[in-house]
């Protein structure tokens, strides 16, 4: 039976789980600690595992030496708009894919799944040329359009799973009471789906917030750069200023960690639902 465990096995289990916890949190701890050290303390022996002085110097110099505030603003703007639009559009397509049977349904689902498998980098060059023609290179609106398209397939698949869990009877009742299909969706189904929709939004937001290669290809002017694009510039320079770099990394990571803490349960559900059934 599962419930009987020998003492030795228990020790092994606890040691292993404890060790893995330390290993998985240490890199986060280390970047956080580094960011609060004085630049002098970062580059001196012996290394300290707890800063002698907590200093905000790295954060201040990050904002002074680079236009980090602008990058944060750009990332926030692009990720918020793209994630909102993508989540709304995916909600519509996921609803149809969960509720209706139609001939091209299998093909649509397949087309969405395939985008998750093929190396998207093959599209980098053509996307750049396309954006040149549309006069949307180095333009935040152009980046949003591409991010929306990138987000749609996975969030459609994820939301479809959530819709499938809601009984048909709910909207049928609403439609008998005189709601249109649109009305039933927005007044009855979506309020029930709120957690799933929020999870999809967070997932999309985090993906846009983190995206690197598309924005590196499309954004050149400093005033248009998102955070990852700017960091890519920092690491390409000859010497890396690890003080500002660690501060920038912390400021990039913390918002996504907070968001993920809310949504992780639903994201895990969305991820595993398809896989285990298949």
């Amino acid at each position: 039976m599962i419930n009987r465990e020998m003492p030795a096995a228990k020790v092994v289990r606890i040691v292993f789980l404890g060790l893995w916890l330390v290993i998985s949190l240490f890199p986060l701890y280390w970047i956080l600690i580094t960011s609060f050290k004085t630049p002098g303390a970062i580059f001196s022996y012996p290394l300290t595992y707890w800063p002698e002085v907590f200093s905000l110097e790295n954060y201040i110099s990050l904002f002074q030496k680079s236009s980090f505030g602008t990058y944060v603003f750009n990332s926030l703007l692009v990720a918020t708009v793209a994630a909102t639009v993508a989540t709304f559009i995916s909600m519509l397509s996921a609803y149809v894919l969960a509720r209706f049977e139609f001939r091209s349904k299998g093909a649509v689902l397949m087309a969405f799944l395939v985008t998750q498998m093929i190396p998207a980098f093959i599209a980098l060059g053509p996307l750049y040329l396309m954006m040149v023609q549309l006069k949307l290179v180095d333009n935040r609106f152009g980046l949003m359009l591409i991010y929306i398209a990138v987000c749609i397939p996975f969030s459609t698949i994820m939301l479809r799973g959530f819709f499938a869990n809601i009984p048909d009877a709910l909207e049928e009742a609403a439609m008998i009471d005189g709601c249109s299909r649109f009305g039933a969706l927005f007044r009855v189904i979506i309020p029930v789906m709120k957690p799933g929709i929020i999870a999809a939004f967070i997932f999309n937001f985090v993906n846009c917030w983190n995206e690197l290669f598309l924005s590196v290809t499309l954004m050149n002017k400093d005033e248009n750069k998102t955070i990852p694009t700017a960091l890519n510039g920092f690491i390409s320079s000859f010497t890396i200023d690890w003080g500002s770099m660690s501060a920038a990394a912390v400021l990039t990571i913390v918002p996504t960690m907070i968001l993920f803490a809310f949504a992780s349960r639903y994201i895990v559900q969305g991820l595993t639902a398809g896989a285990v059934k298949g």
């Binding site: 559009i89 995916s90 149809v96 093929i118 093959i122 980098l124 053509p126 040329l129 990138v150 749609i152």
Partner: peptide, 20 residues
């Protein structure tokens, strides 16, 4: 309901992939 998703994915994902 399907059109917006289909248009975005076709224009900004499939077209560039095929062009590539």
């Amino acid at each position: 309901f399907m059109a917006p998703a289909a248009v975005f994915v076709a224009v900004f994902t499939y077209y560039p992939m095929l062009a590539g």
